[in-house]
């Protein structure tokens, strides 16, 4: 579809030229994870035990940080009104925006996560599972986040509010993401947890753009 690729190309170009937004989320991710050894102490045993959860929580918070960029700028400069009026289904355009958002924030977070696992003494057997779980889980964060970001358009203190709305809904991603990594770290089969993450992704791909598009139509009328 023409509109779909056009949106993705536009978002990537904007992210490339502005640059700093995506880098800030990534820096925040690294910083949050790096704070944990300072907070809980540097013993390798404790860090190894909590490494999966720390990396996932860092990814979750970093994803929240970048959400207000998803629709806010378009809402302010009027591009959103044109998207709603465009001859393509709004749901597909939202999906394109989510995909672009994931490529700019989720993908770098996923790629850097094994490095942070290394800092936290994560069991080396778990790296591949961590990458796979992040590959399945971070797109869900972008998709659920798009629902929250579209709901708070025009609200007061939208940046804080969107985290309040989205974080409770992302709990399943956190639970299954962490259990996949922990299962792999103690030598168990991570397959079932990864499949549940995949199921979440497959459910989120049709449902979240639908809800977000409904919210966007309410926001522009």
């Amino acid at each position: 579809m023409n509109g779909f690729t056009a949106i993705i190309r536009r978002e990537l170009k904007l992210a490339m030229r502005q640059g700093s937004d995506a880098a800030i989320a990534l820096m925040f991710f690294v910083l949050v994870v790096a704070l944990f050894p300072l907070g809980v102490g540097p013993e390798p045993g404790i860090l190894e035990r909590i490494s999966g959860g720390v990396v996932w929580i860092g990814a979750l918070l970093a994803a929240m940080l970048s959400l207000d960029r998803l629709f806010q700028a378009d809402h302010e400069d009027g591009a959103l009104d044109l998207l709603v009026m465009a001859p393509w289904p709004l749901e597909a355009l939202v999906l394109a925006k989510c995909l672009a958002h994931w490529m700019v924030t989720g993908l770098p977070i996923m790629l850097i996560s094994p490095l942070l696992g290394l800092l936290l003494h994560m069991n080396t057997d778990a790296y591949l599972t961590l990458l796979a779980a992040m590959a399945l889980g971070t797109p869900v964060l972008s998709l659920i986040g798009a629902v929250g970001a579209s709901l708070v358009l025009g609200a007061r203190r939208a940046g804080v509010l969107v985290s309040l709305l989205v974080l409770p809904l992302t709990v399943p991603v956190l639970i299954f993401g962490v259990s996949a990594v922990e299962a792999a770290a103690i030598g168990q089969d991570a397959g079932p947890h990864l499949m549940l993450l995949g199921a979440l992704l497959l459910a989120a791909i049709p449902l979240c753009p639908w809800a977000a598009a409904a919210a966007l139509r309410q926001a522009v009328t």
């Binding site: 629902v147 709305l165 809904l169 809800a211 409904a214 919210a215 309410q218 926001a219």
Partner: peptide, 12 residues
């Protein structure tokens, strides 16, 4: 606007 946004959130 708050009522409509809230209604969508409630359904999600």
């Amino acid at each position: 606007r708050g009522a409509r946004a809230g209604a969508i959130l409630a359904l999600v």
